[in-house]
Amino acid sequence: MATRGGAGKIMMSLNDVSLTLGPNQILQAVDLQVRPGESVCLVGPSGCGKTSLLRLAAGLVEASSGSVKNHFACTAAVFQEPRLLPWRRMLDNIALGLKARGVPRKERQDKARELADSVGLAGKYALFPHELSGGMQQRVALARALAIGADFLLLDEPFSALDVGLRNEAQELVQHLVVERGISSLMVTHDLTEALRLAHRVIVISGSPGRVVYEHQVGEPFAGRTQAWLYEAAAHLLRQPLVNQSFLYNPQSEMV
């Protein structure tokens, strides 16, 4: 399996990583690398340990064995839910990471305003999260991650709660603001077409404990990834026996 992806040295790597939480082994012998500017998507059935893998990469949990190395200067994350502070206005939410880094108020507000504009939330600066729709909240979360100038972004099914139209919009934002700007990313999704749209490389994780079962380099440039191409590519991927098996109903995966 060729894993050329982006050019340059490996910035983030999981080497032979296993994770055991309590009595359950979640991940077993996982190898994964992310290169500069590379967009990697993890797909797989629910309960296969995708989110745990992301938490390992974020440094939120320790690997039971193996090693996790992250050489990126600044790592940020967008979670499945927006996780905004309900008591802070939109701009303050976007500027959260900057505040944590001690950036002066004026400067971080300017930066936050700029980012709010770029994710299409101009003029809503003073609203509280509950005054924003679900899609808007998720865009605030994306802006918050971009605000700290991250060179590595972790995305955990960030669009799974959005409807089809909003999801399409959000994917476009990620494509323009993250992938095309050369920010490395590791994104978890259960949607194959979403992965194929945004990734340089798609990794299929499956089983219990989860392991990497298939890797697919996406050769098509982003401009050429039309709706028709996406369906075609997804169908092609699903025809691979290993991928097919992991996406079929598997009673074992439900037990985790």
Binding site: R83, L85, R88
Partner: peptide, 19 residues
């Protein structure tokens, strides 16, 4: 979940208390 978000963004102790 907010705590975890705070971990990812390296939010320091005083700010955690306040925000």
């Amino acid at each position: 979940r907010l705590q975890e978000m705070g971990d990812v963004y390296c939010v320091p102790g005083w700010m955690r208390l306040w925000d």
